[in-house]
Amino acid sequence: MKFFRISCQESARLITARLDRELPLGTRLVLRLHLAACDACPRFARQIELMDRAMDRWRGYVERPADD
């Protein structure tokens, strides 16, 4: 079963990679198994997803002209 184990470092790499592209099915499965067994990586994934949503909102922000 060692084949299906990845390190937290590899998990972090995959978590950030999935923001840019869809991961292959096997990779998604291995990542999901790691996230189910690890305490820290799901927290990291939530933080990354929060930052990604915040950046999307920031990119969509349009500054309004000041009332003079």
Rank of each mutant, 00 (worst) to 15 (best):
L50N: 07
P42L: 03
R28I: 00
D39R: 14
I48C: 04
F3K: 12
V30Y: 05
R5M: 12
R21L: 04
R18V: 00
R28N: 10
L35Q: 03
F4M: 10
R57K: 11
A54L: 12
D68E: 15
D20Y: 10
L29E: 11
M1E: 12
M51E: 14
R5K: 15
R46E: 07
A36Y: 04
D52P: 00
R5E: 14
L14Y: 02
C8A: 12
D56Y: 08
A40R: 11
C38D: 02
D67Q: 14
A37W: 02
I6L: 12
F4G: 09
F44M: 01
V62Y: 03
P65A: 15
L25N: 09
I48F: 03
R18L: 04
Q9V: 12
S11F: 07
V30A: 06
L50K: 09
L29P: 01
A36Q: 12
C41S: 11
L35W: 01
G60M: 04
A17V: 08
P42V: 02
D39L: 04
C38S: 10
T16S: 10
E22L: 08
T27H: 00
A36H: 08
C41F: 03
C41G: 01
L19E: 10
A54H: 05
M1Q: 13
R53Y: 10
Y61A: 07
L19K: 04
A45M: 05
D52H: 15
A45K: 06
M1N: 13
E63A: 15
P42N: 01
P24M: 07
K2Q: 15
P65Y: 13
R57F: 05
S11K: 06
H34Y: 01
F44T: 05
F4A: 09
L33H: 00
E22C: 05
L50C: 06
R13S: 14
A12Y: 02
E10C: 02
A12E: 02
R53M: 03
R43F: 10
E63L: 13
C38M: 00
L14P: 06
A54T: 10
R28T: 00
R46D: 05
R43D: 06
K2P: 02
R18Q: 15
Y61M: 09
S7N: 11
R46W: 04
E10S: 08
A36P: 06
R21Q: 13
R64C: 10
A66C: 13
F3A: 13
P65E: 15
D52I: 03
R13Y: 09
R53P: 03
Q47A: 14
L31Q: 00
Q47V: 02
Q9N: 14
W58N: 09
R57I: 05
S7W: 01
Q47L: 12
E10W: 05
I48N: 03
P65C: 11
A12G: 05
H34W: 04
R5V: 10
D68P: 15
R21M: 03
I15C: 00
S7D: 11
R28E: 08
V30M: 11
L29S: 06
P24K: 01
V62N: 08
Q9H: 13
E22F: 08
M55L: 14
L29H: 09
D20T: 14
Q9Y: 06
L19A: 07
S11Y: 05
